[in-house]
Amino acid sequence: MLELRLVQGSLLKKVLEAIKDLVNDANFDCSATGFSLQAMDSSHVALVALLLRNEGFEHYRCDRNISMGMNLGNMNKMLKCAGNDDIITLKADDGSDTVTFMFESPNQDKIADFEMKLMDIDSEHLGIPEAEYHAIVRMPSAEFARICKDLSSIGDTVVISVTKEGVKFSTKGDIGTANIVCRQNTTVDKPEEATVIEMKEPVSLTFALRYMNSFAKATPLSHTVTISLSSELPVVVEYKIEDMGYVRFYLAPKIEE
């Protein structure tokens, strides 16, 4: 028996909006500690890891570990039917091949349930090794989204370079080149507006912008984004979900032929 009641149902709606274009089908894993997902995009270039810890739910019951295969496009269709202020409850019986999403309006005057068919998905969890990152940049998520969007109108790839000067996002294309430098800035009114750069050593890596733009769909989940870089490792683009967990995107770099 599985029953997860999320008062802030809009969080789940935002999570699906953030990952549905990157991943078609995925297994949601539910255990006593939380609700999680790990999945790759179809070309095996990027990986998404989601964690929603049990303590973030108003009610969390998961009698035994279960893995529920879902088509994220279909799940998103169902969650779009929930209001932004609705409470969302996920329910599944042991051995069932369906999951039910229950939507309750805040004043309890409307209750809907949507039952979705589960699917068998063959997927293996990848082991993500602990890594020491050469540079970690924390910046406003909207700023990062803006930079990725702007650069993708010029080129297809972004070079992210961290030096003591700051973090530089560069691209080039047929029409020209673009460089955007963000310097560390902690003298802001609100902590979420700060740009904080922790650098152990300079690093410069090249990534496909279309994936970065896909990751930026998680912007509504968090005011800030953390970008962790090490040479010859996938970048980690992390959006923390307040009090609950995170969505992390891993993207393999492009290298010289």
């Binding site: 790759m40 270039v45 969890h125 082991g127 996938p234 891993y250 393999a252």
Partner: peptide
């Protein structure tokens, strides 16, 4: 020309 690496080159299957 740069080549896109796979995430599977970094993260191992169990």
């Amino acid at each position: 020309m740069k080549r896109q690496q796979s995430i599977l080159s970094f993260f191992q299957k169990p």
